[in-house]
Simulated scan of single mutants.
Amino acid sequence: MPSDKSELAQRIALTRPDHTVRGFIFNSILILVSQRAGSEAVARLAELVKMKRPIDFFSYPAADFLQLLYAAVDVLEPYYDSVDDAFRACGAATVSGFFESHVGNTLAKLVGRGDPKRAFASTPTVYRTLVSYGSHDCEPMDGRRVKIVFRGDMQPMLFHEGSLRAALMAVGGGAQSAVEGTACALDHSEFLVRW
């Protein structure tokens, strides 16, 4: 079942010309497609969304990223159990791209591994380096939990759920870790992160 194109259109309608996404997030999706579906699939995607290979730390329109994301999910769906899992996989791919980048590598060294609460406290800073829109807040909770609230962010909740799960594992969340997302609106998602 392909991704919901009417939802894509609604999400694109939420974007403004000054809403941008860093190139390495685009490239992370393209790398995932290449790994799963091959280089011909990447070439078809690039042609479909009419884009050249982005430069990692340049900024590109969020609407273009949405088009790439939904097209990539359609290509990737046969390799996952569902469209939802393909969205999550795309989100997870962006985390590996982030931690391989200079900024992500530096941040990982600053916050260290093994302390997810401290790492997730950096959520607003991290997202300000990745995108030019929305608020991305971390609310500490008792014990080994935090609540992450995204407002004004038109990316799908499942995409963010995948990225937050991968980030949790990258900072040492462990086997009992979980991220539970709730879509409150097209541009408002909340996540309970526990480890």
Rank of each mutant, 00 (worst) to 15 (best):
P2K: 00
A13M: 12
L14H: 00
L14A: 07
T15I: 00
H19E: 12
V21T: 12
I25H: 00
F26D: 08
V33L: 13
S34G: 12
Q35N: 15
A37S: 15
G38V: 04
R44I: 10
A46K: 09
E47I: 09
E47P: 02
L48V: 07
K50C: 07
R53Q: 13
D56S: 15
A62K: 07
D64Q: 12
F65S: 06
F65R: 09
L69N: 07
A71Y: 11
A71I: 11
A71T: 13
V73K: 03
E77C: 06
P78M: 03
Y80I: 01
D84F: 12
F87D: 06
R88N: 11
A89I: 05
C90D: 06
V95D: 02
V95T: 05
S96E: 14
E100H: 13
E100Q: 14
S101K: 01
H102M: 13
V103M: 13
G104H: 07
K109H: 04
L110E: 08
R113L: 03
R118C: 00
A119E: 03
A121I: 11
T129V: 02
V131I: 15
Y133V: 13
Y133Q: 13
G143A: 12
G143S: 03
R144V: 02
R144W: 07
V146D: 05
K147A: 03
I148L: 15
R151Y: 07
R151F: 01
G152S: 04
G152K: 05
M154R: 10
Q155Y: 09
P156G: 02
P156R: 09
G162Y: 05
S163W: 06
L168C: 05
V171D: 00
G172T: 04
A175V: 10
E180Y: 06
E180K: 10
T182E: 15
C184L: 15
L186Y: 10
H188E: 15
S189V: 08
F191P: 02
R194P: 09
R194I: 00
W195V: 07
